[in-house]
């Protein structure tokens, strides 16, 4: 297992380098604008030149990239052009919000999607199966922020059951408030994830339940819950975990719009602010942190394959 982890980590390095170089070169295409943005709107050419020097923009591209990379490896992603705050600090004060959101989203998606998928798989082509499949297909076509808007409308504007905006950190007002603020945005994000999970669980379980070993354990007289819960579900685990892993990227992308709708001060809203202000170092930092996040989730998924299918332990 250690070998898998090490191998995967090593293979992630060229990936991250390629990605950072790609974004860095793209960013370089507008270097003059960066200096102008930093110097302020009515800056004289001298002020822009000074800003450019202060930001190190007068050095050649490759040198700047190597310098940035050297700092980035040590956790220093540079300074925001506009607030002069450290990019790492900016990002990491936002990460807990988005992580909380992702956590609640995944819990909802798993609690709803997994049982529905299993139930549908137990009776393929039944009314329940068709209902689940149809609902899942429709939900997968709705962008998360549209669901978010509808939820705001129903639960916050009309009924005032949940707060429409804002975030309450875990340490501030306790677990209840924390959850209260996250429920609606998490449902908005969980709709797609739950739907995808239900569809994949259904497919994987239908496959597994049709296998010979299931017939054998059934012939042995094992009760149905044991067959489904212990034998079939574990064998269907690989595709299910794969889908779960893909949700990391999906939730991160959905968080951008959903955090905006619910005014959550998370990673996604930081991204929107940075893009609106064209704050290059922050954008670059966000891209790299997202990529690392997604890679870590993929790694966890890969390692979990060994649990579900011992043949994949190498």
């Amino acid at each position: 297992m250690v070998r898998i982890v090490v191998r995967r980590l090593l293979s992630a390095i060229p990936l991250l380098i390629a990605l950072s170089l790609f974004v860095f070169v793209l960013l370089d295409l507008m270097e003059g604008d960066a200096a102008r943005a930093a110097a302020g709107e009515n800056a004289t050419p001298e002020e822009i030149a000074a800003a450019s020097e202060r930001l190190g923009l007068d050095k050649p591209l490759l040198l700047r990239y190597v310098l940035w990379l050297g700092n980035a490896v040590r956790g220093d992603l540079g300074e925001s052009l506009l607030s002069s705050q450290s990019v790492s600090a900016l990002i990491f004060e936002r990460v807990p919000v988005t992580l909380s959101l992702a956590l609640v989203t995944l819990v909802i998606a798993v609690l709803v999607g997994l049982p529905l998928g299993i139930a549908a798989a137990l009776r393929p082509n039944s009314a329940l199966d068709r209902f689940v499949t149809a609902i899942a297909s429709v939900l997968m076509a709705i962008p998360p922020f549209v669901i978010g808007l509808v939820l705001v409308l129903i639960f916050a504007v009309s009924a005032s059951v949940f707060p429409a905006t804002g975030y309450s950190a875990l340490g501030e007002e306790g677990f209840g408030e924390w959850l209260n603020h996250l429920v609606l945005p998490a449902i908005a994000l969980a709709a797609i994830s739950g739907a995808e999970l239900a569809r994949q669980t259904r497919a994987a379980m239908v496959d597994t339940l049709g296998m010979d070993f299931v017939r054998t354990v059934r012939a042995k007289g094992l009760r149905s819950p044991m067959i489904v819960g212990k034998h079939a579900l574990k064998n269907a685990g690989v595709p299910i975990v794969t889908i779960l892993g893909l949700q990391a990227s999906r939730v991160l992308a959905g968080a951008v719009t959903v955090e905006f709708v619910f005014a959550l001060p998370g990673f996604g809203s930081l991204a929107v602010t940075a893009v609106n202000q064209r704050d290059i170092p922050v954008i670059l930092g966000i891209v790299m942190v997202s990529a690392v996040g997604v890679l870590i989730v993929n790694l966890v998924v890969d390692v979990s394959y060994g649990y579900f299918n011992p043949k994949l332990r190498r």
Binding site: L15, L26, G254
Partner: peptide, 10 residues
């Protein structure tokens, strides 16, 4: 390896 919307945003 990036979430599509994040890349598009960037």
């Amino acid at each position: 390896s990036l979430p599509p919307l994040i890349l598009a945003l960037a």
